[in-house]
């Protein structure tokens, strides 16, 4: 390999760079994932991209499968992460059809950015539960055990909805927890419990149900102090608004509500 050199070559490099910048500039304005779906489509077809809170991972996967069975032309693609991460990605311009957040405050950051068409609707509610590995090796009985520095405790980081809810229940109980790790989303916390690496953690009751035999859930009285509302909304920049609206309607249909209730979510009145 001979090293390049000489002024003429350098000029060409600069010209080439400018050309590339032009190309990149064009590319950036196209929604990269969903292809040709355009606004105002009559027929429901193609891909719906859903950004959903980590705690919705299992239940939305099931809902997506059911929806796809009813609408053969539609493919539902999910991105599950902490709601705050998703909100950040959406405000940075990710091409999304539907956003389902685990907290109203996180949804509000997307509303404030002017990226939501209509008022987001709360479609389910969730509360926290203490979760311990099967067999409860730390002999945890209640929220008070979270102040024991000898136990290995995992909580969600306060920035994500499950962490904000945890802060509220500890305030309600007048307790100062002694966590050993502050995880980035609720499923990361759950995994640490499933692996038996922590003695106790706070996750949503739906996560405890989803984890099955590997963990045990423990109710605590202060959980009613932090009821998380899950709002769902259509994005203004939705590449495929027709199918997206149908998906949101499906979550509120009797079939959708059955799936959500079976996973342990509370369905709000009215």
């Amino acid at each position: 390999m001979r090293p390049p050199g000489r002024p003429p070559a350098l000029q060409s490099v600069v010209l080439g760079l400018l050309g590339v910048l032009g190309l990149l500039g064009c590319g950036a304005s196209d929604p990269p994932t969903t292809g040709a779906g355009t606004a105002g489509e009559e027929r429901i077809s193609e891909t719906v991209t859903v950004f959903a809170a980590a705690s919705l991972t299992d239940v939305f996967t099931v809902l997506g499968d059911r929806f796809e069975a009813e609408h053969q032309d539609v493919t539902v693609v999910f991105n599950f992460a902490a709601s705050s991460t998703l909100a950040q990605q959406i405000t940075q311009g990710a091409p999304v059809d539907v956003f389902a957040s685990a907290s109203a405050a996180t949804m509000q950051t997307v509303v404030d950015a002017g990226l939501i068409v209509a008022e987001p609707e709360v479609f389910v509610q969730n509360t926290l539960q203490i979760v311990v590995p099967a067999g409860n090796p730390g002999a945890v009985t209640g929220l008070e055990d979270f102040t024991n520095p000898d136990l290995i405790i995992a909580l969600c980081s306060a920035e994500v909805p499950c962490g904000a809810a945890a802060v509220r229940v500890f305030e309600a109980g007048g307790l100062t927890p002694q966590p050993d790790t502050l995880e980035q989303d609720v499923r990361a916390v759950l995994t640490k419990v499933e692996l038996g690496e922590v003695d106790a953690a706070l996750v949503y009751r739906t996560d405890v149900l989803a984890a099955g035999e590997a963990v045990e859930g423990i109710e605590f009285s202060q959980s009613s102090e932090a009821v998380n509302d899950y709002p769902i909304a259509l994005l203004a920049g939705s590449p495929n608004p027709g199918a997206a609206a149908a998906l949101v309607e499906f979550t509120a249909s009797p079939a959708g509500l059955d799936v959500l209730a079976a996973a342990g979510f509370q369905i709000p009145e009215g």
């Binding site: 001979r2 090293p3 390049p4 050199g5 000489r6 070559a9 060409s12 080439g16 050309g19």
Partner: peptide
């Protein structure tokens, strides 16, 4: 690299390599 380049051709780099390299 440029400072150590050898004068082995008129331009040094064929155009076909230059554009991908610039990218």
């Amino acid at each position: 690299r440029q400072s150590r380049s050898q004068p082995d051709g008129a331009t040094g780099v064929p155009a076909i390599l230059l554009i991908p390299a610039a990218i």
